[in-house]
Amino acid sequence: MNKHTTDRLAKIWLWMSAVVIILILLAVLGYIFIKGVGALSVSFLLDMPQNNWREGGIFPAILGSLIVVVVALSFAAPVGVGTAIYLTEFRKDDWFSRVIRTASDALNAVPSIVFGLFGLALFVFYLKDYTGGPSLLSAGLTLGFMVLPTIIRTSEVAMRGVPYAEKMESYGMGASKLQTIRNIVLPGSVPGIATGIILSIGRAVGETAPIIFMVALNPTIPSSLFGSGNTLTTQLYYLAMEGISLKVAFGTALTLVLIILLLNHITRVFKKRLSRNLRRNC
């Protein structure tokens, strides 16, 4: 075979791979949309479930997901951003930063069900007097631990992107380290930090396995952080696994997908702003 024929065939194969990936995405999203759109309505989102989830809405799950995400981010965002500040501004590339970075990478690789086991042992059993056992608080904290590496990584990258010259100008005008962090480093890395936080919200909303031992299929409004509740993902699991109601399952799945699409859109806006500073060519 002539080398130019091979070249053409190879290009066709490469194009095909891209087309296949687009088709897979369209198939998944399209199917969820078609099956779920019939169930979706304002009252579906805001009503209580009825007749054992076969009818009515999914309000408790929406509220549960929201609470869990707020708890997760209230832990992970300050701690993650704090870590990034410490590593970029107070430490050189020394052994300590390498240890923390390796730990963060390893934490990122821990399978979600292992986080579930860990959360079960720590929050549900050992700290049950403080967390209420299998509660939304336990679930939220477990998710917070899980998304911490994402926030550390994205914030660190963002802070390293702040131009050295700007920091030096700040010091040159007599600003202290804290003033420089507050006035130069943090404002300069806001788009990157925000992207990391939104990514983490998406992961926390979409995870099931880490919290499956802490939340049950619960038809009531969560009474407090220390009470039990359920989330969109865990509800979807029980509805699908036990074949309770596929209609409501697809409605829940579509709700999740729409949340992810919205978060994705917001990150894209931030990234556009980000790419003005950081241009990557390839």
Binding site: A18, I21, I22, I24, L25, A27, V28, L29, Y31, I32, K35, S112, G202, V205, G206, E207, T208, A209, T233, L236, Y237, A240, L246, A249, F250, A253, L256, V257, I260, L261, L263, N264, R268
Partner: peptide
């Protein structure tokens, strides 16, 4: 410009949603 966002979206779809799709389709 089409493929990059598509891949990001593919990465963002929750595993339970993939599970539901796989279970039914």
């Amino acid at each position: 410009n089409i493929l990059r966002p598509a891949i990001e979206l593919l990465a963002g779809i929750p595993s339970i949603v993939y599970g539901l799709f796989a279970l039914i389709v």
